[in-house]
Structure formats: C-alpha cells, structure tokens
Deep mutational scan, measured.
Amino acid sequence: WKITIYDQENFQGKRMEFTSSCPNVSERSFDNVRSLKVESGAWIGYEHTSFCGQQFILERGEYPRWDAWSGSNAYHIERLMSFRPICSA
C-alpha cells in the first residue's frame, strides 16, 4: 500500500508518502489534506483524527481536490485528517 498526500490542491505544496496508517496528519505538520494520490492498495480516509467521522473509500488513482473523494455527500467535507489501508485476508 502506498498513498501520497499534499497540503495544496492539484498535488502542490508539501507532500508526504505513507505505506501504513496515519491517525493524525497534523502530527506530520499538515493542517489538512488538500489532494492525494493512491499509488497502490485501497485506503479509508476519515474526516477527523483517530479514524473518526465521515469515511471515504480511496481506490488507486488521483484526487486533485477534496470533492474528488468527498463525492456527492449530503454535506460537503473539505477535511481529511486520518487514513489507513484496507487490508484483505
């Protein structure tokens, strides 16, 4: 599993790669995730830290803005603060 997060939209700004769970992006000096690329595996992104709040399934691909992973939710969530890989047995 591999995911790359960015602190600006369209894959700009600070970037960081992960191959395992991140319970709080702010502990990695990110205020928020504004864009991301899922390089391999599937991940679950969460609205809040500690894997809480609205969940987003993140499959392999590029997500240049928050609405790319938020989709058409009843209330739009511009925040992604934690994530972890989906492990299959």
Rank of each mutant, 00 (worst) to 15 (best):
K2M: 08
I5R: 00
Y6H: 04
Y6K: 00
Q8A: 08
E9C: 04
N10F: 12
N10H: 12
F11I: 01
F11W: 03
G13Q: 02
K14N: 14
R15M: 10
R15I: 08
R15T: 10
R15F: 14
R15Q: 15
M16C: 11
E17W: 07
T19V: 06
T19I: 07
S20Q: 12
C22K: 03
P23W: 07
P23A: 11
N24C: 04
N24T: 03
S26M: 10
R28A: 12
R28E: 11
S29Y: 09
S29C: 12
F30T: 02
D31K: 08
D31M: 09
N32P: 11
N32G: 08
V33E: 01
V33W: 01
R34C: 06
R34I: 02
L36V: 09
K37T: 08
K37E: 05
V38G: 02
V38R: 02
V38F: 03
S40A: 15
S40G: 13
G41P: 03
G41I: 01
G41E: 04
G41M: 02
W43F: 05
W43Y: 02
I44F: 09
I44T: 06
I44L: 13
I44S: 05
G45P: 03
G45C: 10
Y46H: 02
E47Y: 00
H48R: 13
H48V: 03
C52P: 02
G53I: 03
Q54G: 10
F56A: 12
F56N: 05
I57L: 13
I57H: 13
I57Y: 07
L58K: 00
L58I: 08
E59P: 12
E59A: 10
R60P: 14
R60Y: 06
G61C: 03
E62G: 06
E62A: 13
R65M: 06
D67Q: 14
A68D: 11
W69S: 06
W69M: 11
W69R: 05
S70R: 10
G71K: 14
S72E: 15
A74Y: 11
A74H: 14
Y75L: 14
H76L: 08
H76W: 07
I77S: 14
I77A: 13
R79L: 05
R79P: 07
L80D: 01
M81C: 08
M81V: 06
S82G: 02
S82Y: 03
S82M: 02
S82D: 05
F83Q: 00
F83A: 03
F83L: 04
F83P: 00
R84C: 02
P85F: 04
I86G: 07
I86N: 15
S88I: 07
A89M: 11
A89E: 15
A89T: 15
